[in-house]
Nucleic acid binder design. Structure first.
Lengths: 253, 253
DNA sequence: CCGCCAAACATATCTGACAGGTGCGAGCAA
DNA sequence: TTGCTCGCACCTGTCAGATATGTTTGGCGG
């Protein structure tokens, strides 16, 4: 079976699509992020279409995350924005009952990978970022430990996520970091939904801290295998928690 | 006070963005793929904006791949389209000198993963698809072997890619399959660019066939570890080829 | 040289209009 | 009655022109 997009090829492209395609070529081919594209009027003149058509084409590229527009100034080329991919992931996850599990499955595999890569080639700044997240975790864990403190609890989870994102960044692989960043949104979304009222037990927190510290140590010392193993072990232990959270969330919904 | 571009969120959303956001919510929340959205006029009335504004909002969603529009009929909700993500990957790869290597790095990790998952839970149809690609490979390999036959050569590489895509599909993980599909475009693009005039040695072809067969066998028999190992070994052996191709391609460019 | 302001520029949005593709139902033919 | 065709209502594609408002810049006064 051929591509499903083939059904659009039967019809001639609309003017807006034509302009959008050519603009995309121009942008990807010759324009660096931060550069300005010509004004709507100029583009309209060049393609011999109305300004409205140009606006629609530009809006499509904005939807793709290739351009950023602000009132009064010309559109500027944008670095690929993970939020667009995040929207796609949200759509996939919502369309498929087990989409969230698929997402988590991939996420875990990518975590092990990025952890190992980070151990192999993390920069000083990269390690520092991970370390900073680690310190934040410890701090909010301490504050959350001595009593019911939902705010510190939330900050704990936030810095937890930041730890993992910092590891992904430190992998030095921009594609991984990009995908990782995008995955955060649907995951966060479903967690707040499924974690309503629930809190991690204190024991879970200290275990989590230890596990993260092990990952950090391995990365800092450049021990690739240890980094992979530490991350894998950490994920394994949290997997059950996550799944039970999700299961209860789904059941409640 | 210099306003950095980081604070664009502080500006009030434009009408078109507002409509686009609300439409996105509606679509993701209550509309299944294939469903029609209201007509432009209806949406315009509901949000109290002009039809033009609605059109721009819709065009943004089209750019995101959430909608498909055809002249004369209302826009229909679309299943997430990997080509949008593919465009993002192309942008990343082109912006970053080592972007292509990052992409390959991730791709290889995901191949091992999907191979193992396919062994664990591939459906009969999934295995059949892999098998079909395998047969195509053999056929075009045979035709390419007895002389210079660029066409068969091309078909060989095509079915090679299809083999890997079939494995990704067979993993049963839609997120993986989605990302995988998107990666194919930038990879193919750079390969044709870097492979100009080069051809794989015949020995490489028969080795490739064997390696693929090993993966297929492992998946068919449900041997997860063997599937991962076979795929990893295959990738390891092709990694050098790819890198040298890329290196020569970059050097030539 | 610095700071302020108006004009030029650019985007945001609206109104109104017309062309052309789609789909459904009414009416006609077998 | 059944089936087919044709026309009309609906919908999107595109244009022109107009107003509102934000951004940039060049010139002018201090």
């Amino acid at each position: 079976m051929a591509r499903s997009e083939a059904d659009r090829g039967e019809y001639p492209l609309t003017a807006a699509e034509r302009v959008a395609n050519e603009l995309t070529e121009t942008i990807l081919g010759t324009l660096a992020p931060g550069a300005q594209i010509p004004s709507e009027a100029d583009i309209a003149a060049r393609f011999e279409v109305s300004r409205l058509t140009v606006r629609e084409a530009v809006k499509m590229l904005v939807g793709r995350g290739l351009l950023h527009i602000g009132r009064g100034r010309r559109a500027i080329v944008r670095e690929p924005d993970s939020s667009v991919f995040a929207a796609l992931l949200v759509a996939i996850v919502r369309n498929d009952p087990k989409g969230l599990f698929d997402l988590i499955e991939l996420r875990m595999a990518m975590e092990s990978l990025s952890s190992g890569l980070a151990a192999k080639r993390a920069s000083r700044a990269g390690v520092q970022a991970i370390d900073a997240a680690m310190r934040d975790m410890r701090k909010s864990a301490a504050e959350a430990a001595d009593g019911a403190n939902p705010e510190a609890e939330a900050r704990f989870h936030e810095s937890d996520l930041q730890f993992h994102e910092a590891v992904a960044m430190a992998s030095g692989n921009r594609v991984i970091a990009f995908i990782f960043e995008a995955m955060a949104k649907p995951l966060r979304e479903s967690f707040v939904m499924s974690r309503r009222g629930q809190t991690l037990r204190g024991a879970g927190r200290s275990e989590t801290l230890e596990a993260h510290q092990a990952v950090l140590d391995a990365i800092r010392t450049g021990n690739q295998r240890a980094a992979v193993d530490a991350m894998r072990a950490h994920l394994k232990s949290t997997e059950l928690d996550i799944r039970s959270h999700l299961a209860s969330g789904v059941a409640a919904a």
